[in-house]
């Protein structure tokens, strides 16, 4: 009988005791997780938002996080690139532990891309400039190389003809695809998505999901907060159900959909699968 809440097998010490090269090699081979959250806690004042989150994600895996509003999904995914600070526990991303150390934060932000619910494109820059800004100023690529990569990415997300427009001139679905291209331009190892389709009109959801499915199939490691169960069924390796700051249940999509163990999971699924 499977356990409803996955206990992580890896301890932070296991990763941190290795030399940097050994860590990368082991992560590359899939022996150690590329993202490890170990007993992560966070408070907003007195409010305990994250209450002991454990999660391990191996290279190339696609993880779907779902759960009721206010359960801490966004807060958790934002601790992974330090948009939110956790106060207890360990988060280790690609062999680097998140701490107050600014160098670690910079390193991890270079390895993770993030896509937001509200797109957050830069409205004063063209699509091309949105995508090339970080590669030019953070990765220090020459402009020509950055633009070449950006153009390939725009083709990949299906809107090469929009390169010179401003975000305000695009539809929501197009904007979100630009946001995905912008994150990919930094060539991250891990992509974080926080409800990427919730702000979109129904007819635009599919164009964004198609891009995400293609990305998943190309082997990208992805953590996705979403209630798009079709997406989960199609590409997720594992799903985590969050409630009140805890992981209540986890498992493969098969297990979660056909055989949820916990009452809260059943109730929630019955509500959203209508």
């Amino acid at each position: 009988m499977r356990e409803t809440v996955a206990k992580v097998k890896t301890t932070p010490e296991q990763i941190l005791s290795l030399s940097e090269e050994d860590r990368s090699a082991a992560i590359e081979r899939g022996e150690l997780p590329i993202v490890l959250a170990h007993e992560v806690h966070k408070w907003y004042g007195n409010f305990h938002v994250l209450r002991g989150i454990n999660m391990e994600v191996y290279k190339g895996e696609v993880i779907v996080i779902f759960g009721p509003s206010g359960s801490g999904k966004s807060t958790f995914i934002r601790t992974i690139n330090r948009l939110e600070e956790h106060q207890k526990g360990h988060i280790i991303v690609d062999g680097t532990e998140l701490s107050r150390d600014v160098r670690n934060i910079e390193k991890i932000r270079m390895e993770t891309g993030m896509v937001f619910q509200q797109f957050n494109l830069f409205p004063h820059l063209t699509v091309m400039q949105n995508i090339t800004l970080a590669p030019i100023h953070v990765r220090k690529w020459p402009k020509e190389k950055a633009e070449e990569v950006a153009m390939q990415l725009l083709k990949r997300v299906g809107i090469p003809e929009q390169a010179d427009k401003y975000p305000g001139q695009l539809s929501g679905g197009q904007q979100q695809r630009v946001a995905i291209a912008r994150a990919l331009a930094m060539q991250p190892k891990i992509m974080l998505f926080d409800e990427p389709t919730s702000a979109l009109d129904p007819e635009m959801i599919k164009e964004v999901l198609d891009v995400m499915i293609e990305l998943a199939e190309s082997g990208m490691t992805m953590l996705v907060v979403t209630h798009e169960m079709g997406f989960a069924r199609a590409v997720a390796n594992r799903m985590y159900f969050f409630d009140q700051g805890q992981i209540v249940e986890s498992g493969t999509p098969e297990e979660i959909f056909s055989d949820p163990k916990e009452d809260r999971t059943k109730l929630f699924l019955s509500q959203i699968l209508h």
Partner: peptide, 26 residues
């Protein structure tokens, strides 16, 4: 909006770059 800062940080821009390229021009 706060999302502009966050998007810039998430891309790896540091505080100065975020201010100079993203926040101040707008």
């Amino acid at each position: 909006p706060k999302g502009q800062h966050e998007a810039a940080w998430a891309l790896g821009l540091n505080g100065f770059q975020t201010m100079f390229y993203i926040i101040l021009p707008q």
